[in-house]
């Protein structure tokens, strides 16, 4: 399926803004930092760190800091490449129109150059501080996010964030491989937790931002299959996520602390997903405050609550794994 984006006409306004960009520009270093999607980067940094901590080998503090830094820069680089390619639709979406490229403070070509250079730096540096396999997975992750997801899947299929979610799921695996040098079952489980968490997380947001995505022709699940089907799929993914979260207890990656915390968090996730399934979220006009990620009309409250909880959920699940590993699995 290939959807012709009406945003491309709206994007013309953005192109005009960008075309009006002359001279040496007034972009601050903070604008370049914004290109690296710091909010996404914080999640990447945390999960990569947990991958390093949870690995069954001791890693020096220096290596830990440098590996996480490399992964963070690689994630930021792919964010910049995403902003380069998506400049047209970003300009038309309320959530993204204030990004540096649509605002006209950074040229799209500059974002591309910045992204390519930072990608090269991050992969090279990770090779230096860890191993070729970890660096190779980082390079593949950047390629996957920038090319497979951004350039191909995002505008062509409602499964975009299901498959594209793999890019966000690799960081803990990279951390693990940087520490151990190999891909084990536990590394794959860490990957799968984020992979299965991504669809309910993004679809919850998409349910109350439907208009935004529809406006720019991005085929998110609620626009293509409808809100009802999306709400049901969210619940199915929540069940799958609960199952995969039990695997670390079986493999020994997680012990009692993890089992208790993961149990409580998954009950919460399942309950909120069930509420979304039974709600009418996504069946009315867009969010109350277009620029806000959290302001919603009452019918969309269940979706907003799941979206907010899903962020806390991932931090707590990975935090529990890290805490247990740091305590040496004494409980």
């Amino acid at each position: 399926m290939n959807i012709q984006s009406p945003a491309l006409e709206k994007g013309e306004a953005a192109s005009e803004t960008m075309a009006a960009f002359k001279g040496i520009g007034t972009a601050d270093p903070s604008d370049y930092f914004a290109l690296m999607k710091p909010r996404v980067m914080s999640l990447v940094v945390f999960t990569a760190w947990v991958g390093l901590i949870a690995a069954p080998v001791s890693v020096s503090l220096w290596k830990m800091i440098t590996v996480v830094l490399c992964i963070a820069v690689g994630a930021g680089a792919s964010g910049a490449l995403n902003m380069w390619y998506d400049a047209d639709i970003d300009a038309a979406m309320s959530r993204t129109k204030k990004r540096p490229v649509p605002r006209g403070v950074v040229r799209a070509e500059t974002a591309l150059t910045f992204g390519v250079i930072m990608s090269a730096f991050s992969v090279l540096a990770l090779t230096m501080v860890s191993n070729y396999l970890a660096a190779g997975i980082l390079a593949f992750t950047i390629f996957f996010y920038a090319v497979i997801y951004t350039m191909w899947l995002k505008r062509s299929t409602p499964q975009n964030i299901v498959i594209g979610g793999a890019a966000g799921a690799f960081p803990p695996m990279i951390g693990w491989v940087a520490a151990t040098g190999t891909i084990t079952l536990d590394a794959v489980v860490l990957f799968l937790i984020i992979f299965l968490w991504t669809p309910p997380h993004f679809w919850a947001l998409a349910l109350y931002k439907t208009g935004d995505y529809e406006k720019v022709g991005v085929p998110m699940m609620p626009n293509i299959r409808g809100a009802k089907s999306t709400r049901f799929q969210i619940f199915i993914y929540a069940i799958l996520l609960a199952f995969i979260c039990a695997v670390p207890v079986i493999t020994g990656l997680g012990g009692m602390i993890y089992a208790v915390i993961a149990g409580i968090m998954n009950l919460g996730f399942l309950a909120l997903s069930f509420k979304v399934w039974k709600s009418r979220a996504g069946e009315q006009a867009d969010a109350a405050d277009e620029a806000s990620l959290y302001a919603v009309k009452s019918g969309d409250l269940a979706a907003r609550n799941l979206f907010a909880f899903s962020i806390v959920y991932l931090f707590v699940i990975f935090g529990a794994l890290a805490a247990e590993s740091l305590m040496g699995g004494t409980l």
Partner: peptide, 12 residues
């Protein structure tokens, strides 16, 4: 360049 652009370039 304008004064603002020069300041921004300096910061960069």
């Amino acid at each position: 360049p304008t004064a603002e652009e020069l300041k921004a370039r300096n910061r960069r």
